[in-house]
Amino acid sequence: MYKKAGLIFLLSMALYGENQWMTDKEAIESSDVYMRNCIPCHEYLPSTLERMFMSYLKVYSGEFTVKESLKAYLRNPDRDMSVMSELFLDRFGIKYKTDLSEQELEEAVNIYWNKFNVRNKLK
């Protein structure tokens, strides 16, 4: 009796887990290019995307310069071009060259800028 009940519970959990996995996958597929291509890797890094944005802002200042430098780096990642610290680069290295199309890259960078831009957040 106990064995049967335990089996039913495990089967139920397994089915729930499968349904849950389907839901996350669908969510990622239906989200924007930034969510699909940036978040998955960066969520495992100690420095958040927001801090990286602030580093870009500190070096490149304006919207055009930030976006252009970001795109240039993503197309051809280079240690010398990176805004991250030596310590970070030693630990995590530099990313692989992006395989996003120009349009996708443009869209991702625009989303990134709009998400973390400081202008509308200062009070």
Binding site: Y60, S61, G62, E63, F64, T65, V118, R119, L122
Partner: peptide
């Protein structure tokens, strides 16, 4: 102002 002379605050 940023490098492009756009007002930040």
């Amino acid at each position: 102002y940023d490098i492009e002379r756009v007002l930040i605050f």
